[in-house]
Design a protein around this nucleic acid. Structure first.
Lengths: 220, 220
DNA sequence: TGGTATGTGTAACAGATGTTACACTTTTTG
DNA sequence: CAAAAAGTGTAACATCTGTTACACATACCA
């Protein structure tokens, strides 16, 4: 129900750039077979883990069994790097391999050492987390808009600020509905009403904004 | 409408610990009078700004005038430190002083230098951002639950995992409604239904969880 | 090319939440 | 202590969204 589409979630990644890591780095590599639970929600996160091969899914679970959200992560990407340094440094999710996977583990102390000795590593780490925060902020902003038309307006105005008043969205209604967290027919209804009201026009996947004022009013 | 209560937003802060900063740090201090716009949404963020005196409000605006959310920040706290290192390093909000304010400005290069030379500063910076991310993640999780009862259940189970099955919540219904992003009477209705259904009981501000299974089902 | 899968438009209906209003209770304050 | 303020319970009603169902269009594939 509240699944989070992987596409919307993890944007940036540590480049494969092994060059980032010095030869004397202390680390270990773990290999896991398919369908293995590698981190448990609530478990202490005392190292930086980077998925360098394979893919995993993270599930947010509610102490017994109900899922709240799923994210699929493909290599290469760090796993929950933001939590390594939080006061409550515990994994917020279960992590399970989807296929055979290889995980690089760098102990927290070593991460700190790397950060001070390798400015590029530090910048990369900071940038990754910053981008993630920005993504979360944006997502939060979108979710805190109550009405479907408001969400659509927010999204379209954002696109518009990047691509002008006419642009193509390479997503079908089902995907968009998932992104907004609403039902597909409800999205279709709202879209067609907005077209009828003359604030936008739609041709296939090409959207044209006709009345920015009107759109902004929908944000409430 | 979608106001974000300051209390829920910024938890951690750079301690006043001037000791974190070395004597040779290059910085500048800006003073602003009341009701001055000090950062504009979209403006480039090329330095770390720390509010050391006074208070400001941040408004998320939609290119012209409509508010999406307001956050009030009191000194001492950094202003949007997460965005300093993001690929799109622009302020996500307008920042306006509420009273006379004093802002410490540390250029990005200097921040990087500090991080490498002052491990404590680096840890503080990382921890702050990590906590912020964790907060945002949690908030996102809460907002992505659709039903009011689901939000309540999520919140109560979280409290319960920290304080056991009986605990006090020092917030009135109006505040809770704001936190959940719902209308106050709607919250009251949901709460009273949950009491009637016997999953919880409420005495003033003391909540008792009577049926955790039932609560988990409400998460959907 | 024809058939199948996928995507879209739309309608009827049910359910949940917001809005408004008001009585009542509790807390605060002078 | 009394009056005012703040907080709570509840009802009627409006509105929005989800659900389900189905017709139709479009894209894909053998």
């Amino acid at each position: 129900m509240t699944n989070i589409n992987p596409e919307w979630v993890g944007l940036n990644q540590f480049d494969e750039d092994k060059g980032l890591f010095p030869a004397d780095m202390s680390y270990s590599i773990q290999n896991y077979r398919k369908n293995i639970l590698i981190f448990r929600q609530g478990g202490v996160c005392d190292a930086l883990y980077i998925l360098i091969q394979g893919s995993v899914k993270t599930e947010m679970i509610t102490e017994n069994g109900n899922l709240l959200g799923i994210e699929i992560i493909k290599a290469p990407r760090p796993l929950a790097p933001a939590f390594l340094f939080s006061d409550n440094n515990r994994f917020p999710v279960d992590v399970t391999t989807l296929e055979d996977a290889e995980v690089l583990r760098i102990p927290k102390e070593e991460v700190i050492r790397l950060m001070t000795s390798q400015p590029d590593f530090m910048k990369q780490f900071l940038t990754h987390n910053a981008n993630r925060t920005q993504f979360l902020t944006n997502r939060l902003q979108l979710l805190s808009i109550k009405t479907i038309k408001g969400k659509i307006a927010h999204f379209l105005l954002e696109q518009s600020s990047e691509h002008g008043s006419k642009f193509v969205i390479n997503r079908n209604q089902t995907e968009l509905a998932g992104f907004f967290g609403v039902a597909r027919p409800s999205l279709a209804r709202s879209l067609s009403e907005m077209v009828q009201d003359g604030v936008i026009s739609i041709n296939k996947k090409e959207y044209t904004l006709l009345n920015n004022e009107g759109l902004r009013e929908l944000l409430l």
